[in-house]
Amino acid sequence: MTAFDDLTRLIPPPSQPLWANGDWNTVETALAVELPSDFKQLIESYGAYYFSEFLTPLAPFGGRDLLVGPAKRMLDQERGFRDGNPEKCPYPFYPEPGGLLPWAGTDNGDRVCWLTEGQPDGWTVVCWNPRGWYYDTHPVSAVEFLVGWLSGDISTSVFPDAAEFAADTDDNEGERD
């Protein structure tokens, strides 16, 4: 049994996921990094799904540039703060080696990132609140984090538990417009 199997039991994928299909080679070339296989499976099955009406994976396909463009701009956006407050920034930012690379976002503006150290399928999840500058690290994959957060087995100090939000009950509730 895989984490992805656990996810599909918790929340069945939508019949027509939003922004789920595209060319991964183009995405990885644009980012200059290989992405974890579980994330690719997540996007291909769920697309830009709205988990617990709060957290959305950053699908790189479709109508909006949720992954590549924002990832490429992150270092520029955060560099000024980091330069003035290095003690509040314990991690480098993508595209720096081993930098944080967002793979999901929340309605509160929090980011769920990978710490891009080692092989992609072994990357650690880091939840980050860029307004309050605090981080919470979880040594699991993206899908493992999502399953743990949805089931209540993983909590983060960065944003509320999934149980605090309305549960997804059918294929349409989790799709974004």
Rank of each mutant, 00 (worst) to 15 (best):
E144D: 15
Y135T: 04
G122A: 14
G148H: 02
C113H: 02
W114N: 04
S157P: 12
Q119L: 14
L150R: 06
A142L: 02
Y134H: 15
R131C: 12
V140H: 03
W133Y: 12
Y134P: 05
R131E: 15
L115V: 09
D136K: 10
T156L: 11
V147D: 10
V126R: 03
V143C: 11
W149L: 07
Y134D: 10
S141E: 12
R131I: 13
G152C: 07
C127T: 13
N129F: 00
N129D: 15
V147T: 08
P139F: 14
W123C: 01
S155I: 00
D136F: 04
F159K: 04
T137Y: 00
P130T: 03
W123A: 02
W123D: 01
W149C: 01
T116P: 10
V125M: 04
W123Y: 07
V143H: 13
P120C: 13
W133T: 06
V112L: 13
V143M: 12
P130M: 09
T124S: 13
D153N: 13
G122E: 14
R111D: 06
A142C: 14
V158W: 11
P120E: 11
S155P: 01
V112K: 05
L150T: 08
D136R: 11
D121M: 08
Q119A: 15
G148R: 08
T116G: 10
D136M: 13
N129S: 15
Y134A: 08
R111A: 12
T137F: 00
Y134R: 10
Y135L: 01
G148Y: 03
V125D: 00
W149N: 07
V126M: 03
Y135M: 09
A142P: 07
L146K: 11
Y135W: 15
G122F: 12
S151D: 09
L115C: 12
S151W: 07
A142Y: 04
P130Q: 11
N129M: 00
T156W: 08
F145Q: 04
V158Y: 02
V147E: 05
S151P: 06
V158K: 05
V125R: 01
W128M: 11
T124I: 14
T124N: 11
S157K: 15
A142F: 02
G118K: 07
N129L: 00
V126S: 00
W133H: 15
I154R: 01
W114H: 06
G152P: 06
V125Y: 06
V125G: 06
C113L: 13
Q119F: 13
E117I: 13
V147G: 03
D136C: 12
